[in-house]
Write a protein that binds this DNA or RNA. Structure first.
Lengths: 179, 179
DNA sequence: GTTGCCATGTAAATGGTTACATGATTGG
DNA sequence: CCAATCATGTAACCATTTACATGGCAAC
């Protein structure tokens, strides 16, 4: 009997799914996260490599040495057990994690201690931030950087959310200025 | 010369601001965070009490013993230095932190490995989550739980964001079902 | 008298990021 | 030959959450 793979931690979830999708090296997984999910789910190298080894130890992923010339390289692939764990995670009924750390909004929450100009500056910067994110996402969507259906769908979510936030900030700017 | 108070860490930012706003005990600060900011900026007891002591050590906050009967109690208040640090944070030009961990969206990103029914379930749950959050926020807004201008403004941001996300999920549900 | 709230705190575990360190390969 | 990219890894650090531990006070 395999050692009950506990529940997958945050890094394990995305790493396992990325391996399942065919990203075979730690490096490739990191790159794909940056390209595709970093706006709503990040992970850093320092977590990815150890996690891959843990997943191998748990039997959810298999490794094969696959050097390129003199460069060592590991080729990871998902196992049947890994596929089962991935499916279990994707379909499990527990409330999905949804967390935000929004510093601009926290600042606005305490805007009362500022003078009128500083308040407006605060909201204006919030708006600029979302505008810039929209611009970058639109550019990449136009370039066709998101080819897969679900990859594009989640990118469009990120774009829509930033558009909404930019619009909210524009309205808030007017409200704050009108004092 | 006071030991350059470095930059405020995440917990320090909200704790200092809460003290400035007149929440005088660790307990009260925790309660206020739960009531007002937890949807976009959280903090837990285990961080708040030590942080209050660090802020006192840095001279940004002052303590006074203020027992209630036999119960020890600390009454925290902001110092001039603390006010300056708070103002510096609120007006500083660096890019504000904006992070999200959205598990439902991450699952959708990998929906390709699921069958049609499981995919629809995924999006339906995403929608249900945001609907529920909207319901709770609307209820509290109706009750007048957010009296202060900026407190209400940030609560309305949270409501608006969840409404947008619920709407997006509803549209996505239709798209995913139509396959 | 007992439940729930006010109030403070610590310890251990968890989780994650940053920076550092290394070195081969590819393309210009 | 130089720069960029591919590729792997570790160690130190930072921050935060959870669980535990304690005890008075207020209200029913």
């Amino acid at each position: 009997m395999s050692p009950a793979p506990d529940v997958l931690n945050q890094t394990a979830r995305i790493v396992l799914a990325m391996v399942a999708e065919g990203h075979t090296t730690g490096y490739a997984i990191k790159a794909e996260i940056e390209r595709s999910t970093r706006l709503f789910w990040g992970a850093s190298v320092g977590g990815i490599y150890p996690e891959l080894r843990r997943l191998v130890a748990a039997g959810l992923v298999a490794v094969r040495d696959d050097p390129r010339g003199q460069t060592r390289r590991h080729c990871y692939s998902i196992t049947d057990e890994g596929r089962a764990a991935l499916h279990a995670w994707l379909t499990d009924g527990s409330e999905p994690l949804f967390e935000m750390r929004n510093e601009a909004l926290l600042r606005l929450r305490f805007a009362a201690v500022l003078g009128p100009e500083d308040r407006v500056t605060l909201v204006r910067r919030l708006r600029a931030l979302h505008d810039e994110r929209c611009r970058l996402l639109e550019e990449r969507l136009d370039e066709g950087a998101f080819d897969d259906v679900y990859d594009r769908m989640t990118a469009e979510y990120a774009l829509g959310l930033n558009r909404w936030a930019a619009g909210w900030a524009a309205a808030a700017e007017a409200r704050v200025a009108r004092e």
